[in-house]
Amino acid sequence: MPLTLEIVTPEAKVYSDTIDSVVVPTVEGEIGVLPGHIPLLTQVADGELRVTKGGATSWLAVGGGFAQIDGDRVRVLAEHAITEEKIDENTVEAAMKRAEEELKAAKTMDPQQYEHLQSLVRYSGVQLAVKRRRR
């Protein structure tokens, strides 16, 4: 029996398909999910999410959120998520550089802004890692 995987962000439903297995990055480390997995609710960390479908593997970059496994349904609630094909290396790199510079330049910044920039840098790093993994 196949699994269904849904990845939802505030902006849109990023991914919705039936798959064979998925590896989700969580705060406790990566977990692999196959059909018949025990029901689970866990926190997702920034990282790469691996989807296997019909022998082919695809990658997604996800940023912080939660995942719920219920029966044969895996649902991921993430702040960001993007499929590998849609990652544009140059824009991500530019955004990362900008955020890093802002972090360096500002000595006194309100903590929320700081946190936002840091998460931006982290997520950019994840996206680049996903994009470059096959070279």
Partner: peptide, 17 residues
């Protein structure tokens, strides 16, 4: 509704989640 009747697991823990 939930389809699976088994007890749900929480990681790291229910409180943390």
């Amino acid at each position: 509704k939930f389809t699976d009747e088994r007890d749900m697991l929480f990681e790291p823990s229910a409180d943390a989640v």
